[in-house]
Amino acid sequence: MGKRDDGAGPDVLRRVGEASVLILISLADGPKHGYALIQDIKELAGVELGPGTLYGALDRLERLTLIESLPAEDRRHPYRITAPGAAALRVHLDSLERVSAAGRLRLQLGGI
């Protein structure tokens, strides 16, 4: 998945794991802090991220400069998706869409 490069660059999110992709999707509509991310992802995808998983993924995404942390509000750091993060998410979602479409087509052809 994601091996095709349609001019939009390689799919850097191919190997970061589901949690990281869900975090990027959650941050796509605006900055959020840890608790808001967990709640949003639970609502969005039905996935309950553990706090250890959340901070591991946030660290990884920050190292890849796909997100950035904003100045702390109280003790919470809100995180924001960066321009490269948004571009990477777009490439990844396009790739998922292609695979999804191919899968649906094959199910139709197979008559299952």
């Binding site: 840890g34 967990i38 706090p51 250890g52 109280d74």
Partner: peptide
């Protein structure tokens, strides 16, 4: 931040043990 998040999750009903376990696994990683 992580301690505050844990307190919020505990307030919502998440068992402290599962939060601690998640942090332990995260620390190992």
């Amino acid at each position: 931040e992580a301690a505050e998040l844990a307190m919020l999750l505990i307030r919502d009903g998440t068992p402290a043990r599962s939060i601690a376990w998640s942090y332990l696994a995260g620390a190992a990683r």
